[in-house]
């Protein structure tokens, strides 16, 4: 790889990163808090790229042979692969396909330091992971009878024929470490397609057998008050364990 190719490659990576940051698409791949490190990286790449493009063109003017000199190994071309994939497959975030492959998070003690909920008649917005954490781990069970507003993806499952699993992914760093967090909604009375974003007002349904005594995966269930479809997924599609 010669110097001009190298600099164009670095510049393109910087540009694509900047675009992903601008459109918010980076949130499909990494946590929101990676925004500023990524921005810094994009700026550095764009500056390096510009500096190198200009100086290699100048150098070529003085020394026509300079473009034949290697300025990086052949394997460096592979760096264009993520760009090609982004431009062609145009991947989006984790969804039903991923949820069906990875074990869910239900049996993990996420955080027990929850403030008890006050009884409320208006629904309380809550992360799916907090809903699950409270359901399983909060001893006071203050969530019993309190309406909660959850946002998440629809994941249809054979075990829930009359409903679906409302799903969010818990991502600590990048989508490759994503773990689904799910709440089972039964008797929904309506079919939703996989990967649709919904906002659901629900009330926790305490289990008949305590979760800790259940065989297999612990499933947190909730009764649906109402569901509306969200046309646009939220910017921060993933929940963070922090």
């Amino acid at each position: 790889m010669n110097r001009l190719a190298r600099s164009i490659l670095l510049f393109s990576i910087g540009l694509v990163m900047a675009r992903l940051l601008w459109t918010g698409g980076f949130g499909w791949f990494v946590q929101q808090r990676m925004r500023f490190p990524l921005l810094a990286a994009a700026v550095v790449l764009i500056l390096f790229g510009l500096y190198e493009i200009v100086s290699s063109l100048r150098e070529e003017g003085r020394d026509p042979d300079s473009s034949k000199r290697a300025a990086g190994p052949f394997v460096g071309w592979l760096l264009s692969l993520p760009l090609l994939v982004l431009a062609s497959v145009a991947p989006t975030g984790l969804g039903a396909a991923a949820a069906n492959r990875v074990d869910s998070y239900s049996s993990v003690e996420i955080d027990t330091g929850y403030e008890p909920l006050a009884p409320s008649s208006t629904p309380i917005p809550m992360q799916v992971s907090e809903f699950q954490g409270r359901a399983i781990w909060e001893e006071a069970q203050s969530m019993d009878g309190v309406p909660v507003l959850l946002e998440g993806l629809v994941v249809n499952d054979e075990t829930v024929p009359d409903g679906f699993k409302l799903t969010r992914f818990l991502v600590s760093c990048c989508a490759a470490d994503g773990i689904p967090v799910q709440v089972v909604l039964r008797d929904v009375g309506q079919q939703f397609e996989d990967d649709m974003w919904v906002r659901a007002e629900v009330v926790w349904r305490p289990p008949e057998v305590p979760y800790q005594d259940q065989e297999g995966e612990w499933e947190v269930e909730a009764d649906v008050v109402r569901i509306e479809v969200e046309p646009n997924p939220p910017n921060d599609a993933y929940e963070s364990p922090y």
Binding site: W28, F29, A41
Partner: peptide
């Protein structure tokens, strides 16, 4: 590119690359 597996694969692949990029640049 409508295949579910391919799309999931490319999400994982791109996310590993993107996540490493700031650390690599640093």
């Amino acid at each position: 590119f409508e295949n579910d597996e391919l799309r999931l694969w490319s999400t994982l692949f791109v996310s590993i690359c993107i996540q490493a990029l700031p650390f690599l640049v640093l």
